[in-house]
Computed example of a mutant assay.
Amino acid sequence: MGEKTPDLLIIGSGPAGLTAGIYARRANLTVQIVEKEYRGTGQIADSGRVDNYPGLPGIGGYELGEQFRGHAEKCGVSFTEGEAGKLWREEGKWKCRLEDGRVLEARAIIYAAGTVHRQLRIPGEQQFFGKGVHVCAWCDGAFYKDRVAAVIGGGDSAVDAALYLAGICKKVLLIHRREDFRAAKSSLLQAEAEENIEILRNTVVSKIEGTHKAEAIWTQDNRRLPVDGIFVEIGQIPRTEILRELAVTDENGYIQADETGRTALKGFYGAGDVRTKSLRQVITAAADGANAAVLAAEDLRRTTEKEV
Protein backbone atom coordinates (compact mmCIF):
# COMPACT_ATOMS: atom_id res chain seq x y z
CA MET A 1 0.00 0.00 0.00
CA GLY A 2 1.15 3.54 -0.78
CA GLU A 3 1.56 6.32 1.72
CA LYS A 4 -1.72 7.69 3.02
CA THR A 5 -2.82 11.03 1.56
CA PRO A 6 -2.59 13.85 4.15
CA ASP A 7 -5.92 15.18 5.36
CA LEU A 8 -5.18 18.85 4.96
CA LEU A 9 -2.84 21.03 2.94
CA ILE A 10 -2.59 24.67 4.06
CA ILE A 11 -1.20 27.26 1.66
CA GLY A 12 0.40 30.07 3.66
CA SER A 13 2.17 30.25 7.03
CA GLY A 14 0.83 33.53 8.41
CA PRO A 15 -1.47 33.77 11.43
CA ALA A 16 -4.42 32.27 9.50
CA GLY A 17 -2.48 29.29 8.16
CA LEU A 18 -0.66 28.59 11.43
CA THR A 19 -3.85 28.79 13.49
CA ALA A 20 -5.60 26.52 11.00
CA GLY A 21 -2.76 24.05 11.45
CA ILE A 22 -3.08 24.14 15.24
CA TYR A 23 -6.84 23.55 15.17
CA ALA A 24 -6.58 20.87 12.51
CA ARG A 25 -3.99 18.92 14.51
CA ARG A 26 -6.15 19.21 17.60
CA ALA A 27 -8.88 17.60 15.49
CA ASN A 28 -6.39 14.78 14.77
CA LEU A 29 -5.94 15.63 11.10
CA THR A 30 -2.64 15.12 9.31
CA VAL A 31 -1.53 18.60 8.25
CA GLN A 32 1.07 20.03 5.92
CA ILE A 33 1.69 23.77 5.55
CA VAL A 34 3.28 25.15 2.38
CA GLU A 35 5.34 28.24 3.18
CA LYS A 36 6.81 30.54 0.56
CA GLU A 37 9.73 31.55 2.78
CA TYR A 38 11.71 29.42 5.21
CA ARG A 39 10.18 29.73 8.67
CA GLY A 40 7.88 32.46 7.38
CA THR A 41 5.14 33.83 9.61
CA GLY A 42 3.41 36.27 7.25
CA GLN A 43 3.24 40.06 7.19
CA ILE A 44 3.01 40.24 10.97
CA ALA A 45 6.79 39.73 11.08
CA ASP A 46 7.21 43.18 9.50
CA SER A 47 5.45 44.96 12.37
CA GLY A 48 7.87 46.34 14.93
CA ARG A 49 5.23 46.31 17.63
CA VAL A 50 1.70 44.92 17.94
CA ASP A 51 -0.54 46.65 20.48
CA ASN A 52 -3.94 45.18 19.63
CA TYR A 53 -3.51 41.42 20.06
CA PRO A 54 -5.40 40.55 23.26
CA GLY A 55 -3.23 39.65 26.22
CA LEU A 56 0.06 40.54 24.53
CA PRO A 57 0.16 44.35 24.26
CA GLY A 58 3.40 45.70 22.87
CA ILE A 59 4.72 42.39 21.58
CA GLY A 60 6.97 42.53 18.54
CA GLY A 61 5.43 41.31 15.30
CA TYR A 62 8.29 38.90 14.66
CA GLU A 63 8.01 37.49 18.19
CA LEU A 64 4.25 37.03 17.88
CA GLY A 65 4.68 35.24 14.57
CA GLU A 66 7.31 32.96 16.11
CA GLN A 67 4.94 32.10 18.94
CA PHE A 68 2.24 31.14 16.43
CA ARG A 69 4.72 28.98 14.56
CA GLY A 70 6.16 27.35 17.68
CA HIS A 71 2.66 26.38 18.79
CA ALA A 72 1.93 24.83 15.39
CA GLU A 73 5.19 22.88 15.47
CA LYS A 74 4.45 21.66 18.99
CA CYS A 75 1.10 20.36 17.74
CA GLY A 76 2.84 18.32 15.06
CA VAL A 77 2.20 20.40 11.94
CA SER A 78 4.69 19.65 9.17
CA PHE A 79 6.08 22.36 6.88
CA THR A 80 7.18 22.37 3.25
CA GLU A 81 9.10 25.29 1.80
CA GLY A 82 7.95 26.22 -1.68
CA GLU A 83 5.66 28.47 -3.70
CA ALA A 84 2.32 27.09 -4.89
CA GLY A 85 2.02 27.37 -8.67
CA LYS A 86 -1.16 25.46 -9.53
CA LEU A 87 -4.09 23.89 -7.66
CA TRP A 88 -6.57 21.39 -9.02
CA ARG A 89 -8.88 18.59 -7.91
CA GLU A 90 -8.44 15.11 -9.36
CA GLU A 91 -9.99 11.78 -8.40
CA GLY A 92 -11.40 13.15 -5.16
CA LYS A 93 -8.10 14.71 -4.03
CA TRP A 94 -6.68 18.22 -4.14
CA LYS A 95 -3.27 18.57 -5.76
CA CYS A 96 -0.77 21.39 -5.57
CA ARG A 97 2.13 21.80 -7.95
CA LEU A 98 4.94 23.86 -6.49
CA GLU A 99 7.03 26.17 -8.65
CA ASP A 100 9.94 23.72 -8.45
CA GLY A 101 7.81 20.94 -9.95
CA ARG A 102 6.96 18.96 -6.81
CA VAL A 103 3.34 17.88 -6.52
CA LEU A 104 1.63 17.65 -3.12
CA GLU A 105 -1.83 16.27 -2.49
CA ALA A 106 -4.40 16.27 0.30
CA ARG A 107 -8.05 15.54 0.92
CA ALA A 108 -8.75 19.24 1.53
CA ILE A 109 -7.07 22.62 1.18
CA ILE A 110 -7.15 25.80 3.24
CA TYR A 111 -5.85 28.70 1.19
CA ALA A 112 -4.35 31.39 3.43
CA ALA A 113 -1.69 33.02 1.26
CA GLY A 114 -2.66 36.54 2.36
CA THR A 115 -2.24 39.83 0.54
CA VAL A 116 0.44 42.35 -0.29
CA HIS A 117 -0.04 46.07 0.28
CA ARG A 118 0.09 48.32 -2.74
CA GLN A 119 3.06 50.64 -2.62
CA LEU A 120 3.55 54.25 -3.60
CA ARG A 121 6.96 53.35 -5.05
CA ILE A 122 8.52 56.66 -4.13
CA PRO A 123 11.86 57.55 -2.50
CA GLY A 124 11.87 57.01 1.25
CA GLU A 125 8.90 54.62 1.39
CA GLN A 126 10.93 51.45 1.90
CA GLN A 127 13.72 53.21 3.79
CA PHE A 128 11.33 54.37 6.52
CA PHE A 129 8.92 51.43 6.52
CA GLY A 130 8.22 50.69 10.18
CA LYS A 131 10.00 53.92 11.09
CA GLY A 132 7.17 56.32 10.47
CA VAL A 133 5.72 54.67 7.38
CA HIS A 134 2.96 52.12 8.01
CA VAL A 135 0.19 50.27 6.23
CA CYS A 136 -2.24 49.70 9.11
CA ALA A 137 -3.70 52.56 11.15
CA TRP A 138 -5.42 50.16 13.55
CA CYS A 139 -2.13 48.38 14.22
CA ASP A 140 0.21 51.35 14.57
CA GLY A 141 -1.95 54.44 15.00
CA ALA A 142 -1.59 54.46 18.79
CA PHE A 143 2.09 55.33 18.42
CA TYR A 144 1.05 58.76 17.14
CA LYS A 145 -1.20 59.87 19.96
CA ASP A 146 -1.40 63.68 20.01
CA ARG A 147 0.91 63.91 17.01
CA VAL A 148 0.49 64.61 13.29
CA ALA A 149 -0.27 61.76 10.91
CA ALA A 150 -0.86 61.57 7.18
CA VAL A 151 -3.06 59.08 5.37
CA ILE A 152 -2.44 58.59 1.66
CA GLY A 153 -5.29 57.21 -0.44
CA GLY A 154 -8.81 57.87 -1.66
CA GLY A 155 -10.77 54.72 -1.00
CA ASP A 156 -12.77 53.43 1.95
CA SER A 157 -9.69 52.12 3.73
CA ALA A 158 -8.00 55.54 3.56
CA VAL A 159 -11.00 57.52 4.79
CA ASP A 160 -11.74 54.98 7.53
CA ALA A 161 -8.10 55.14 8.63
CA ALA A 162 -8.24 58.94 8.76
CA LEU A 163 -11.40 58.83 10.88
CA TYR A 164 -9.83 56.31 13.23
CA LEU A 165 -6.65 58.37 13.57
CA ALA A 166 -8.67 61.55 14.17
CA GLY A 167 -9.63 60.12 17.54
CA ILE A 168 -5.97 59.62 18.44
CA CYS A 169 -3.87 62.23 16.69
CA LYS A 170 -3.62 65.99 17.08
CA LYS A 171 -4.02 66.39 13.33
CA VAL A 172 -4.57 64.12 10.33
CA LEU A 173 -3.76 64.94 6.72
CA LEU A 174 -5.87 62.93 4.27
CA ILE A 175 -4.03 63.10 0.96
CA HIS A 176 -5.56 61.99 -2.34
CA ARG A 177 -4.08 62.36 -5.79
CA ARG A 178 -7.47 63.10 -7.39
CA GLU A 179 -10.37 65.47 -6.75
CA ASP A 180 -12.99 62.77 -6.25
CA PHE A 181 -12.74 60.06 -3.61
CA ARG A 182 -13.77 56.44 -4.20
CA ALA A 183 -14.81 56.09 -0.56
CA ALA A 184 -18.42 55.97 0.58
CA LYS A 185 -19.99 59.43 0.55
CA SER A 186 -21.18 59.09 4.14
CA SER A 187 -17.64 58.38 5.39
CA LEU A 188 -16.19 61.24 3.37
CA LEU A 189 -18.77 63.68 4.76
CA GLN A 190 -17.85 62.55 8.25
CA ALA A 191 -14.16 63.13 7.53
CA GLU A 192 -14.89 66.57 6.15
CA ALA A 193 -16.73 67.41 9.36
CA GLU A 194 -13.84 66.40 11.64
CA GLU A 195 -12.02 69.50 12.87
CA ASN A 196 -8.63 67.82 13.02
CA ILE A 197 -8.75 66.22 9.55
CA GLU A 198 -7.38 68.31 6.70
CA ILE A 199 -8.20 66.92 3.24
CA LEU A 200 -5.70 67.61 0.49
CA ARG A 201 -7.16 66.83 -2.94
CA ASN A 202 -5.23 66.71 -6.23
CA THR A 203 -2.07 66.19 -4.23
CA VAL A 204 0.56 63.67 -5.34
CA VAL A 205 3.20 62.59 -2.84
CA SER A 206 6.62 62.47 -4.50
CA LYS A 207 8.94 61.43 -1.68
CA ILE A 208 9.25 60.82 2.05
CA GLU A 209 11.99 62.63 3.93
CA GLY A 210 13.69 61.89 7.22
CA THR A 211 16.89 60.98 9.02
CA HIS A 212 16.44 58.05 11.39
CA LYS A 213 12.67 58.07 10.85
CA ALA A 214 10.14 59.68 8.51
CA GLU A 215 9.75 63.38 9.24
CA ALA A 216 8.02 64.94 6.24
CA ILE A 217 6.21 64.38 2.96
CA TRP A 218 7.12 66.21 -0.24
CA THR A 219 4.50 66.72 -2.95
CA GLN A 220 4.93 67.06 -6.68
CA ASP A 221 4.19 70.78 -6.45
CA ASN A 222 7.20 71.10 -4.14
CA ARG A 223 5.39 71.45 -0.81
CA ARG A 224 6.98 70.05 2.34
CA LEU A 225 4.47 68.70 4.87
CA PRO A 226 5.96 67.87 8.29
CA VAL A 227 4.39 64.72 9.78
CA ASP A 228 5.20 62.17 12.46
CA GLY A 229 3.51 59.15 10.95
CA ILE A 230 2.49 58.18 7.42
CA PHE A 231 -0.14 55.56 6.61
CA VAL A 232 -0.22 54.27 3.04
CA GLU A 233 -3.80 53.15 2.37
CA ILE A 234 -3.97 52.61 -1.38
CA GLY A 235 -5.30 49.07 -1.28
CA GLN A 236 -4.12 45.50 -1.08
CA ILE A 237 -3.48 42.83 -3.68
CA PRO A 238 -4.64 39.32 -2.72
CA ARG A 239 -2.23 36.54 -3.57
CA THR A 240 -4.75 34.58 -5.60
CA GLU A 241 -3.31 34.53 -9.11
CA ILE A 242 -3.24 30.73 -9.11
CA LEU A 243 -6.95 30.55 -8.24
CA ARG A 244 -8.27 32.20 -11.41
CA GLU A 245 -9.12 28.89 -13.09
CA LEU A 246 -10.98 27.71 -9.98
CA ALA A 247 -13.52 30.58 -10.15
CA VAL A 248 -13.65 31.11 -6.36
CA THR A 249 -12.64 34.78 -6.26
CA ASP A 250 -14.60 38.01 -6.62
CA GLU A 251 -13.88 40.84 -9.04
CA ASN A 252 -11.11 42.11 -6.77
CA GLY A 253 -9.40 38.75 -6.47
CA TYR A 254 -10.52 37.87 -2.92
CA ILE A 255 -11.78 34.36 -2.14
CA GLN A 256 -15.54 34.31 -1.84
CA ALA A 257 -16.11 32.64 1.50
CA ASP A 258 -18.08 33.40 4.63
CA GLU A 259 -16.76 33.30 8.20
CA THR A 260 -16.66 29.49 8.12
CA GLY A 261 -14.17 29.62 5.27
CA ARG A 262 -16.32 27.46 3.02
CA THR A 263 -16.23 28.14 -0.71
CA ALA A 264 -18.29 26.80 -3.60
CA LEU A 265 -15.67 24.09 -4.18
CA LYS A 266 -15.74 20.85 -2.21
CA GLY A 267 -12.85 20.59 0.18
CA PHE A 268 -11.51 24.09 -0.55
CA TYR A 269 -11.54 26.78 2.16
CA GLY A 270 -10.33 30.36 2.37
CA ALA A 271 -8.90 32.02 5.48
CA GLY A 272 -7.22 35.24 6.51
CA ASP A 273 -6.65 38.46 4.60
CA VAL A 274 -7.23 36.70 1.29
CA ARG A 275 -10.92 36.17 2.14
CA THR A 276 -13.75 38.63 1.45
CA LYS A 277 -14.29 40.56 4.68
CA SER A 278 -14.22 44.05 6.13
CA LEU A 279 -11.49 43.84 8.79
CA ARG A 280 -8.05 42.39 8.10
CA GLN A 281 -6.11 42.05 11.36
CA VAL A 282 -4.02 39.36 13.05
CA ILE A 283 -6.89 38.42 15.33
CA THR A 284 -9.40 38.05 12.48
CA ALA A 285 -6.87 36.04 10.47
CA ALA A 286 -6.41 33.67 13.41
CA ALA A 287 -10.18 33.38 13.82
CA ASP A 288 -10.51 32.57 10.12
CA GLY A 289 -7.92 29.83 10.41
CA ALA A 290 -9.69 28.27 13.39
CA ASN A 291 -13.10 28.37 11.67
CA ALA A 292 -11.81 26.91 8.41
CA ALA A 293 -9.94 24.09 10.16
CA VAL A 294 -12.92 23.11 12.30
CA LEU A 295 -15.22 23.08 9.27
CA ALA A 296 -12.70 21.11 7.20
CA ALA A 297 -12.42 18.52 9.98
CA GLU A 298 -16.19 18.18 10.15
CA ASP A 299 -16.53 17.84 6.38
CA LEU A 300 -13.73 15.28 6.17
CA ARG A 301 -15.29 13.25 8.99
CA ARG A 302 -18.62 13.15 7.16
CA THR A 303 -16.89 12.13 3.94
CA THR A 304 -15.05 9.33 5.73
CA GLU A 305 -18.28 8.07 7.33
CA LYS A 306 -19.95 7.92 3.89
CA GLU A 307 -17.02 5.99 2.45
CA VAL A 308 -17.06 3.38 5.22
Rank of each mutant, 00 (worst) to 15 (best):
G2V: 07
D7E: 13
L9I: 03
G17H: 04
G17M: 01
G17L: 00
V31G: 09
V31M: 10
I44K: 06
G48N: 14
V50W: 00
N52R: 09
G58Q: 12
L64C: 03
H71M: 07
H71F: 05
K74M: 09
V77Y: 00
F79V: 06
G85F: 11
G85I: 01
W88C: 08
W88N: 08
E90D: 15
G92F: 14
W94F: 05
K95G: 07
D100C: 05
I109A: 02
I110G: 04
T115Y: 13
V116A: 06
P123I: 04
H134Q: 06
V135L: 06
Y144H: 02
I152S: 02
G154V: 01
V159F: 13
A161F: 15
A166G: 08
L173P: 02
D180R: 15
R182L: 11
R182W: 11
K185C: 11
A193E: 15
E194R: 08
K207W: 00
E209T: 02
T219H: 03
D221M: 04
R223T: 15
V227H: 02
G229W: 01
F231K: 00
G235E: 14
P238R: 08
L243V: 07
L243C: 05
A247Q: 12
E251L: 09
N252I: 03
I255T: 04
I255D: 01
Q256D: 10
Q256G: 10
A264W: 01
L265P: 03
G272W: 05
T276D: 12
Q281T: 15
T284W: 15
A287Y: 14
L295H: 10
L295K: 11
R302T: 07
R302A: 14
T303P: 02
E307M: 13
